[in-house]
Write a protein that binds this DNA or RNA. Structure first.
Lengths: 140, 140
DNA sequence: CGTACATCCTCTAGCGGCTAGAGGTGCAAG
DNA sequence: CTTGCACCTCTAGCCGCTAGAGGATGTACG
């Protein structure tokens, strides 16, 4: 087993060095062993874990959710209902966010298209912001 | 002109009381006059400004962008190219975010559908997180 | 007029998820 | 043996608020 420095771990996992230390601080990652000179020394399993975390973060899971997912991964004989529930909750969030962003997109497009590139007092961008009643979408 | 308390301003604008004070602190909102007992006293124009800010925040504009938009609104004879540029930039951001969220949605759906509701060691949710190569989408 | 109670005030600290920087130590190559 | 990068710890900062302490003010009712 060759020792893996934090820099190597960062390169291989795609998680930045200070972020790795941060994950250790909040207990997502175990405290690795240290070299004689007090430098962190990782193993292959830590790289897997880091990659897992990075992937989950990219999917927008919060750290608390990841904490649960990791503990599930550590206990593979448990039923996976929790993992399923977490993923489903995240899916609902994402779907809501997409709907909301699509509404925003429509509104921004109206603003941008309506802008006659003249003076501010005729600008639809400012106008729409100033007068909510002009919104096509009233969900917000 | 009747005096408007911060609580009323909050109710009418939909911006919470501490947030109004926060906006004053960062200079988005002027310092209002005060009552004899040192309580903030707003005018109608402050309500318009607060509504403008709230609306812009709901559209996801950052505070710095709102600062610019507000200063444009304060100078209605200026050309509105900046407002247009800010809105366009925000539109691009929103479009990118939507694309990225659609990819995430697809990935989450795969995970959730693949989950056989058995044990963690057969769970697709955990599996996909652990092994990035299983992703349908490789943009991240 | 007193008192109860909501609302207001200022101030500081905390949230999430990092990121930046200061000031110092370890280590490998030339 | 020195150069220079990577590492260490620690603290503070980012955004856009939000929460809470501890106290002052304003208003409605008896």
């Amino acid at each position: 087993m060759k020792k893996i420095t934090i820099g190597e771990a960062a390169r291989k996992s795609g998680v930045k060095v200070p972020t790795i230390r941060y994950y250790e601080g909040i207990g997502l990652l175990r405290e690795p062993s240290r070299s004689e000179g007090n430098q962190r020394s990782y193993e292959q399993s830590d790289l897997h874990r880091l990659t897992f975390i990075r992937h989950a973060r990219e999917l927008g899971f919060e750290v608390e959710a990841i904490r649960t997912l990791l503990s599930l991964q550590d206990n593979p004989l448990q039923p996976c209902a929790s993992a399923d529930a977490i993923a489903k909750a995240r899916l609902v969030e994402v779907e809501q966010r997409i709907r909301s962003l699509l509404a925003l997109k429509a509104e921004l497009e109206m603003m941008v298209e309506g802008c006659g590139h003249g003076r501010v007092d005729q600008c639809r961008v400012i106008e729409v912001l100033a007068d909510h009643a002009q919104c096509t979408h009233h969900g917000h």
